[in-house]
Design a protein around this nucleic acid. Structure first.
Length: 290
DNA sequence: CAGTCGTGGCT
DNA sequence: TAGCCAAGACT
């Protein structure tokens, strides 16, 4: 039995306050939605918006991207971070071209089978692009449910049962469910934020279990991010930035990060990038994958 | 399950 | 200022 109080309170707020984002324009299309969701994985909205427009102008369809070189995808990804997402998006485009006649699939299991698409992205595409009734659960939604429903300051670590819990909060009609999914994410992003929530402006504060309990602190089980300064990730980032800037010209392997303080780390970075397929080696030179 | 994987703005 | 955080996915 769904508890629709949250949905009933969130829907009007969302209709009145939803930001005008590109992927919310009518007729944005499943491909645009898919690309935007890839870019939004761990990257803030503000940085995605301009890059998304460039990407879709250059590759208006999955097949257009699939027919181009992976190097171009990695290069246009630029500074969005986690560059293997660019590679995986290119692979997904190839799979869509070869297995789905160039049409972004609508079925969640078909979407899950694509490279780089997990529980969140598969359902986001099915729900937002195709309007189907699926639970779309991201970090914002988990936080909103933790507070409003369970009275906890922070959510438990992500778990598959989160999907079933969100399903119980969705209205029966598909279009209303899509609004609820988007509204929960929006609320978590602009009001019910991780660090300093703006409860005074919250449209569901009157039924929020956390507010009712006096906003208690609860044990924080979130995973801490490893330090970036001095990390292997930083070294990988530096290697790839260099190859992006030089592309399509290759760079002599000896010249890549020649002055890096930690030689072993520099070698590790190159080897792991090769293993990931983000870099190719040929004749003692490195370059983006063609 | 816990570790790994970029980048930059915000507090 | 240094840490926190961001529409996650894969191994």
């Amino acid at each position: 039995m769904p508890d629709l109080a949250l949905a009933d309170a969130l829907a009007p707020w969302f209709r009145a306050h939803a930001r005008d984002l590109p992927w919310r324009r009518p007729g944005f299309g499943a491909w645009g939605t898919l690309v935007s969701e890839f870019m939004l994985q761990q990257t803030p909205v503000a940085r995605v918006v301009p890059r998304l427009a460039e990407w879709l102008e250059r590759w208006p369809t999955p097949t257009a991207l699939a027919d181009d070189a992976p190097a171009e995808a990695v290069r246009l990804w630029a500074n969005l971070g986690y560059p293997r997402r660019a590679l995986w998006l290119h692979r997904a485009a190839v799979e869509i071209r070869d297995r789905h006649h160039g049409v972004v699939p609508r079925d969640v299991d078909d979407l899950l089978a694509l490279t780089g698409i997990g529980d969140y992205t598969a359902r986001a595409v099915a729900a937002f692009a195709y309007g189907d009734r699926h639970p779309v659960v991201d970090t914002n939604t988990r936080r909103v449910i933790a507070r409003a429903v369970h009275g906890r300051a922070q959510p438990a670590p992500p778990h598959r049962r989160d999907l079933a819990e969100m399903t119980d909060l969705l209205p029966p009609a598909a279009p209303d469910a899509a609004v609820m999914n988007a509204a929960a994410m929006e609320l978590g992003q602009v009001i019910c934020t991780a660090r300093t929530p703006r409860c005074g402006e919250c449209p569901v504060q009157h039924l929020c279990a956390w507010v009712a309990a006096g906003r208690p602190e609860t044990p924080d089980t979130r995973r801490r991010q490893a330090r970036y300064e001095g990390s292997d990730r930083q070294a990988r980032g530096a290697v790839l930035r260099l190859l992006r800037d030089r592309d399509p010209s290759p760079v002599a392997e000896d010249a890549v990060l020649a002055g890096w303080p930690d030689r072993a780390q520099r070698d590790r970075a190159i080897l792991s990038l090769l293993a990931d397929g983000l870099v190719e080696a040929e004749g003692g030179e490195l370059r983006l994958p063609r």
